[in-house]
Amino acid sequence: MLNVSRETILNCLLALTLLVVPFIALSLDEPFYVTLATRVAIYALAGVGLNLALGLGGLISFGHAAFFGIGGYAVGILASHALNYEPHFSSPFELEGTTQMLILWLVAMIVSGLAALIIGLFSLRTSGVYFIMITLAFAQMIYYFAISWPAYGGEDGLSIYVRNGFPGVNTLIPINFFLITFGVLMSALFLVATLRNSRFGAALQAARQNEDRLSAVGIKPFNIRLATFVISAMITGLAGALFADLNRFVSPNMLSWHTSGEIMVFVILGGVGRLFGPVAGAALFILFEFIFGGLTEHWMFFLGLVLLAVVLFARGGLIGSLAGKVRYD
């Protein structure tokens, strides 16, 4: 018996559309849309990270810009050292910069994960409104640090002169770079889907539904949440790394609290806790920006109105309205 839910069909359609649009754009000689689709994929990836913590774990992090920005800066800093032939430090061992995406991604994820470990150790001791405010505050701390630390551009940001390389692929060709980001996005979605169905995922979702129940069976919610927060940050950090390569530029803006808010908006517009929610949400966001941004420079005003309407009247986001409520097996 073929048992395919409406959500699965919707997910496949979303993935397929995102994959096909850039090729259609290319055939119509409209390369701009390839970049647009790449942005959707990267924003979606950042959202996939947050959705793991927020949607599955119920952790309302308002500080994911920190990880997005850290991922970006990791790439920017390593690449700038590589281009200047200047090692980061020479003792006890020499660490040089690199322009290999795979290594850059790894570093971006490790650094974001470490940052999340430290932030999580403090913020996960609290819950509710405290958690929201504390994650926001820590992200702001890193933001101010990036502004006031002059070595890597401070307020002006840091340019990456040549897009970093990927083995066997010319990343300078937009469609190639799009395919790389698309591949990363799909892998992250697969990872989150796997986690969701695993024992770890069961404990995580139980922690969201009823923390006392989880403790009473002998599983410490704190440990599960901390691990989730770290994985979530690593995914968002990876998105930041790709974003840096897309723009060939990183700035404190990536770390700003507006970015945290926007990542959250991707997740909400698409549907909290839905696997493809961030993909739908990021696509809606970019579409909105593209259409209304062309009509008025004050498109954010209308985004605010739409967001307000979604929160007040259309809970569940796009996937929620199209595929109904979440059902567990």
Binding site: N197, S198, R199, F200, G201, A202, R213, V217, I224, D329
Partner: peptide, 19 residues
Amino acid sequence: MLAVQATEGTSFRFFKPVM
């Protein structure tokens, strides 16, 4: 199942689907 999983040791198993 959550309780059984807790008594069997670690919940830090990330891959095998519980269902």
